[in-house]
Nucleic acid binder design. Structure first.
Length: 725
DNA sequence: AAGGCAAATGTTTTT
DNA sequence: CATTTGCCTT
């Protein structure tokens, strides 16, 4: 391909960024300004025009999704995959380094990654060992403390002991936790970054090697980097590499989890010789929407400064609706979506954005009532489900029996008569001998009662023989065999009713995932690689499902997405800006950026809604309209009071059976079934529920039912034998 | 070891 | 209000 092709289709600012030859480059990329495009084209330009080997390029993102997208687009643009280039998340790249240099990093070869859940369990254990009272300092607080310290690049040893009882308790826990991790050969997310940084600090030769290798470092979402990530980048770039940082200070919404917006300003100061390019032309939204966003964000101080503009139309005004209460608000949204789809638009082109997850409920109920299929983003992901985590724990033990978190999780799952007392003894033994639980278990055997000793011994033999039996098997076979031999499959199958079935299905999906897994390194066994991927990429894989449904999500998770029609609901003081964030000026500014993110998601039409009365936590709240709404120039906003809308507060009896709904000709409703969306149904095991969704037709038709007791489930229509109520 | 009850506790989330 | 947690009982 021709070099000019990489450049020609860009606007002047984009072109300037892509072909910058200054030492460093800061791209301030406004929402919808072609940020990823610039990044991808710059990489292509470096390879094609500058003749830089992909081997000398490193591109780092924040999420797996972003790095996948970047890889695909580079491949698309270059026509070939960029062999030798490092593309990944901060955590992914750190992991790659630690795997390659595990000895220099002071890790065991098969170190495992601890996720948030296992981390909390481990912390609980440390509490018990140290005799710290979780009533006084909740476990979660310690978890938060440890993670924040790691985000800042601080180990327990770096922190000055104080007389402050909180700090000294937290420090004690931090220390004990560090030891437990080291002993178990596990590493949490923060530790990946911290260790990768220390690896380079401690091994200058290694650092030098990587500094020499990477001539260009490209960073996406730079405003989201935390202290340790920034330090890591500085170290790597210290050998003269060129850094391209792409970000938007106005979209920094993760300060509360360690992201440092000031890294953008510091970049110019710390790196010197930085060319700054602003991408301000927006290709997403109408001028009205952009003007609203610009006006709102202008209230923040200390910005790098940026004003979005478009060559496109003004578009429709922003509609503001004052609901009488949250029910009315939700009803309004549902009606507007009905109008939208009636006009021939798809449902998935509409999104409802809210500040906190709790708000989704009323909206769901309204959509259900209106028979509008919806999809909620967020919630449990595949690898976070209990049964999957149990299965993974067994697999982890196969790789590394000293993994205490895995050991604790499954020593009595399925139940095999190992109670708390036995476990306590093993823990005590482990503490005394400073060994892993697995090792301690062997030492504890003699002092256990016959039955308990048998059970523990049986467990260890199970794991050991499982390891022997699976050496020559493929990953899929290992998973399948493990599920059988451990009895996990049976255990979950026998779980009462509803849950069991889903869990067995999920375990089946796990086997499928194992079968389809592609190893990174063919010289290494697949299992550890699979476990690493499971830990580092919680797999939004099934979000790809392309049912035509309205998208519901928090403002945070909407970042990076765009929708023709957007609703920002709950535009009320105390809700948004959230009460807990409206006190401090800094946090309020972050809320405002969140609002900016929300507004700039909208392509054609934006609705903002609020409720005059909102039931929350039992009480009635009369929140004033959000200050953010008042920040938008009045001429851009149209206040809505549709004729035919309710003139008094409406309340709906929850789950009340509705009349006249059966057999309505909804195209998605599997017309011959007698069931429609929103239909109340009865299932002989799960009880009563409401039909949420349909999928497929004929013998393959499946129906999603939200059971009052059992929660939401997908059933095969053919077998479900649902009775309409 | 599972189920039931009382008490606490209510942002945002990736890796 | 409603969900989740943890303690207590069978």
């Amino acid at each position: 391909m021709d070099v000019s092709q990489i450049i020609d289709e860009l606007n002047p600012a984009q072109r300037q960024a892509v072909s910058s030859t200054d030492q460093h480059l800061l791209v301030l990329a406004g929402a919808g300004s072609g940020k990823t495009r610039v990044l991808v084209h710059r990489i292509a330009w470096l390879v094609r025009a500058q003749r830089i080997s992909p081997h000398a390029l490193l591109a780092v993102t924040f999420t797996n999704k972003a790095s996948r997208e970047m890889r695909e687009r580079i491949q698309h643009l270059l026509g070939v995959s960029p062999q030798g280039m490092w593309i990944g998340t901060f955590h992914g790249l750190a992991h790659r380094l630690l795997k390659a240099h595990w000895q220099d990093a002071g890790l065991s070869e098969n170190f495992q990654i601890l996720d948030a859940d296992d981390q909390l369990r481990l912390i609980k254990r440390v509490y018990t060992t140290l005799g710290i009272d979780p009533e006084r300092w909740p476990h979660r607080q310690a978890q938060w403390y440890i993670n924040s310290q790691k985000d800042e690049g601080l180990r327990a040893g770096h922190i000055q002991p104080t007389s402050d009882p909180f700090t000294s308790a937290m420090l004690q826990v931090y220390r004990g936790y560090e030891e437990a991790c080291q002993r178990g050969g596990v590493v949490d997310f923060g530790e990946l970054l911290l260790r990768a940084h220390e690896l380079w600090l401690n091994k200058p030769d290694l650092l030098h090697h990587y500094q020499q290798r990477f001539a260009h470092i490209l960073v996406d979402e730079f405003q989201d980097t935390n202290a340790i990530q920034y330090a890591w980048l500085r170290l790597l770039a210290g050998g003269g590499a060129t850094v391209t940082a792409v970000g938007d200070d106005d979209q920094s919404i993760y300060g509360w989890r360690g992201a440092r917006i000031e890294n953008i300003q510091n970049f110019v100061r710390d790196f010197g010789d930085v060319q700054t390019v602003r991408l301000e032309q927006n290709y997403r939204s109408t001028a009205t929407i952009l003007n609203a966003a610009n006006a709102m964000i202008a209230r923040n101080v200390g910005r790098m400064g940026k004003t979005l503009w478009t060559a496109g139309q003004d578009g429709e005004p922003i509609s503001l609706y004052a609901g009488f209460n949250e029910q009315d608000e939700a009803r309004f949204v549902a009606e507007r979506i009905e109008d939208w789809t009636t006009q021939g638009n798809s449902r998935h082109s509409a999104a409802i954005l809210y500040r906190s997850n709790a708000q989704s409920r009323v909206l769901e109920e309204a959509l259900l009532r209106a028979q509008i299929p919806y999809h909620i983003h967020g919630g449990h992901r595949f690898y976070e489900r209990l049964e999957i985590r149990n299965a993974l724990a067994y697999l982890r033990l196969l790789v590394n029996p000293n993994d205490d978190a895995a050991f604790e999780r499954v020593i009595n799952t399925p139940t095999r008569g190992i109670g708390d007392k036995t476990l306590q003894q093993i823990r005590e033994q482990a503490r005394q001998r400073r060994v892993s639980l697995w090792q301690a278990a062997e030492h504890t055997l003699p002092q256990l009662a016959g039955r308990a000793a048998n059970a523990v011994d049986g467990f260890q033999q199970l794991v050991t023989s499982l390891r022997d039996e699976t050496v020559d098997l493929t990953l899929g076979e290992i998973a399948e065999h493990m599920l059988q031999r451990t009895g996990l499959l049976e255990f979950h199958r026998l779980e009462k009713g509803e849950r069991g079935q889903t869990r067995v299905e999920n375990l089946g999906e796990l086997i499928t995932a194992c079968q389809g897994f592609e190893v990174q390194d063919i010289t290494q066994p697949p299992l550890p690689q699979f476990l690493d991927e499971a830990a580092l990429d919680a797999g939004d894989r099934q979000a790809e499902r392309d049912e035509d449904a309205v998208q519901l999500m928090t403002l945070h998770s909407a970042k990076g997405l765009e929708f023709p029609l957007v609703f920002m609901v709950g535009m009320e003081e105390n809700l948004f800006p959230h009460k807990l964030s409206s006190e401090e000026p800094g946090r309020l500014e972050e809320e405002r950026r969140l609002c900016y993110v929300g507004i700039t998601r909208a392509m054609q039409k934006l609705y903002m809604t609020f409720a005059e009365v909102r039931r929350l936590y039992g009480g009635e709240n009369y929140n004033p309209v959000s200050r953010f709404v008042r920040d938008i120039p009045a001429q851009l906003v149209q206040e809505v009071r549709l004729s035919g809308s309710v003139t008094r507060p409406t309340t709906y009896a929850k789950n009340a059976p509705r009349k006249g709904m059966r057999g309505k000709g909804n195209s998605d409703s599997g017309a011959d079934t007698g069931l429609g969306l929103g239909q109340q149904v009865q299932h002989k095991v799960f009880g009563e529920g409401v039909v949420l969704n349909f999928e497929g037709n004929g013998a393959h038709a499946r129906v999603q039912v939200n059971f009052h007791k059992a929660g939401s489930k997908w059933l095969v229509l053919q077998y479900a034998n649902l009775q309409p109520l």
